[in-house]
Design a binder for these strands. Structure first.
Ligand SMILES: [Mn+2]
Ligand SMILES: [Mn+2]
Ligand SMILES: [Mn+2]
Ligand SMILES: [Mn+2]
Lengths: 218, 218
DNA sequence: AATAATTTTTAGACTAGACTAAAAATTATT
DNA sequence: AATAATTTTTAGTCTAGTCTAAAAATTATT
């Protein structure tokens, strides 16, 4: 059994590993968890003893299979709770993360199994992120950042990169959300902004915004 | 904001106060939380500083109004989660307590408000215990221990005193549960056992069991 | 290859919350 | 009223998790 703090480290390392593929550095973990490198060193020694990860001094860390399964399970809980909050308790997608950060640490296998069936075995959370199954398998979906699309390419919005409340509320205001059809009408070389049509409506989108929206092309 | 540990102390003291009405002793708290008296002394000093309770050395403690409201809020969360687990997630009444002990510490006013309406503003938890409202008011119901009933008195089972899994599963096996009609047919002076009729079925019940079942007389 | 900059680890300190053992206060018993 | 038993507090220790400051190792730059 892991403490909340240990679980937060495991999850952070897992997320960092999905984007970097080599050993995760002490500093990267510290930044992600807004803690100090010295604290991270202490904790990764402990997690190494517990066979969650492999650690060699100055070399960064890599999760073991056990560590990956543990991480996937925490993420599964986090995302299922997010679905619950949105689908059943009238939360908006910008409100769920903070609460899910707490709920993901509740220990009860039955609870999470039952929650999963109560919600109808959802495949994705309110931000479009896939929900790992009980074995920790995480279905990867084919998606591209809007910013990488060429003129005249089109697709459906399937996810966001930035999940901050600020960004999500901005998307709400612009009526951009999961499932919306998006077509790149033009790209402006001057500031790399995009002229897009979203569900029939034309608008201009900054590069920063386009860099945080995932599209499944069609 | 209180830590989980602080919340557990506050709740324990609140529960002890409902049965004792004078200052709650260090030892009583230690026993309830299966911790040591010295740990309790440390914690009640802290809770006294935080205006949760009034503490004078060697005199035991009393919750302030603020402390009582805080306790009622934790109990509200605990019991609403228990309802959720039974009503929505197929938990039995002997399985919910352990998980509710964790869920009661989740911090989110919106979560608990929404959960309350999602459940249809339930008045009692799966063990028959009343659910405090948002202001911390706890409706008291007129109930008597089955062991205090006289011959020929009858009523409805509305609660249990012992909420251990063992006792609850025993009740399930005997088909005793909330809402069942119970009539005392006879009392046996030799061992203070009871001959009762429960929903039409006659059975003998030990004094120990009768001491843990609440009846609303009719 | 040497030096500078950066990253990582170590050493030592702090807090919350727990514990044991001993001292002090209270309560019960003679 | 004195003594014994019990309860409560204090003093000191421990662990988990964090921090700062300094030392050590690695990486980048000249
Ligand atoms: Mn989230
Ligand atoms: Mn999410
Ligand atoms: Mn309970
Ligand atoms: Mn209950």
């Amino acid at each position: 059994m892991f403490s909340q703090s240990e679980e937060n480290y495991i999850k952070a390392i897992y997320h960092l590993a999905t984007v970097s593929d080599k050993g995760i550095s002490t500093n990267a973990i510290a930044k992600k968890l807004t803690t100090k490198a010295s604290s991270v060193t202490d904790m990764i020694k402990k997690l190494s003893d517990k066979k969650v990860l492999v650690y060699k001094k100055y070399q960064g860390v890599t999760l073991t299979d056990f560590g990956k399964r543990t991480a996937a399970n925490i993420i599964r809980k986090h995302r299922l709770w997010e679905v619950f909050l949105v689908e059943k308790l009238n939360f908006t997608w910008d409100e769920v993360h903070e609460v899910a950060e707490q709920l993901e640490h509740i220990k009860s296998p039955k609870l999470i199994d039952e929650l999963d069936s109560f919600l109808g075995h959802p495949k994705r959370d309110p931000h479009g992120d896939p929900i790992p199954d009980k074995e920790g398998n995480l279905p990867q979906i084919q998606k591209s950042l809007l910013s990488t699309l060429e003129k005249n390419e089109k697709g459906v919005c399937v996810g966001v990169n930035d999940t901050s409340s600020e960004f999500l509320r901005f998307l709400d205001k612009q009526e951009i959300g999961l499932g919306k059809n998006i077509e790149v009408l033009d790209k402006e070389p001057f500031d790399d902004s995009f002229l897009v049509k979203i569900n029939g409506k034309e608008m201009t989108i900054s590069n920063k915004v386009a860099n945080n929206i995932y599209i499944q092309k069609n």
